[in-house]
Computed example of a mutant assay.
Amino acid sequence: MSGFDALEVAARAQLDRIQRLTDDLAAIRVDHANDDATVTISVDGAGRLMNLLLSHDISRLSPAEFECAVVATAAAAAREALGRRGGLIEEFNG
Results as ranks from 00 to 15, higher is better:
Gln19Thr: 11
Ala76Ile: 01
Glu80Tyr: 01
Ala46Ser: 11
Ile58Met: 11
Leu21Met: 08
Leu21Phe: 01
Val71Gln: 02
Ala76Val: 02
Leu52Asn: 01
Ile28Lys: 06
Gln14His: 14
Ala64Gln: 10
Ser55Gly: 07
His56Pro: 02
Arg60Glu: 06
Arg84Tyr: 00
Ile89Arg: 05
Gly94His: 08
Met1Arg: 13
Asp44Gly: 12
Thr73Trp: 02
Ala72Ile: 02
Asp23Thr: 14
Ala46His: 05
Ile89Cys: 03
Arg12Lys: 15
Ala26Ser: 14
Ala77Val: 05
Glu8Ile: 14
Thr73Gly: 08
Arg60Ser: 07
Ala72Ser: 13
Asp35Ser: 15
Ala10Gln: 15
Ile28Trp: 02
Cys68Lys: 12
Thr40Cys: 08
Ala78Met: 05
Gly94Leu: 00
Thr73Met: 04
Val71Pro: 00
Pro63Asp: 11
Ala76Lys: 10
Val30Leu: 10
Leu7Lys: 15
Asp57Arg: 11
Cys68Asn: 10
Leu7Trp: 06
Leu52Ile: 08
Gly83Asp: 06
Val43Gln: 13
Gly3Lys: 14
Asp24Met: 05
Ser2Tyr: 03
Asp31His: 15
Ala76Gln: 09
Ala77Met: 03
Leu82Glu: 12
Phe66His: 05
Ala33Lys: 13
Val43Cys: 13
Arg12Thr: 11
Ala81Ser: 07
Ala64Asn: 07
Val71Glu: 00
Thr22His: 09
Asp24Val: 03
Ala75Ser: 12
Ser2Met: 08
His56Thr: 07
Gln19Gly: 02
Ile89Pro: 03
Ser2Leu: 07
Ser62His: 03
Arg60Cys: 00
Cys68Asp: 09
Glu8Arg: 15
Arg48Ala: 12
Ala76Thr: 09
Cys68His: 06
Asp31Ala: 14
Ser55Arg: 03
Ala37Ile: 01
Ile58Val: 12
Asp35Gly: 14
Val70Cys: 03
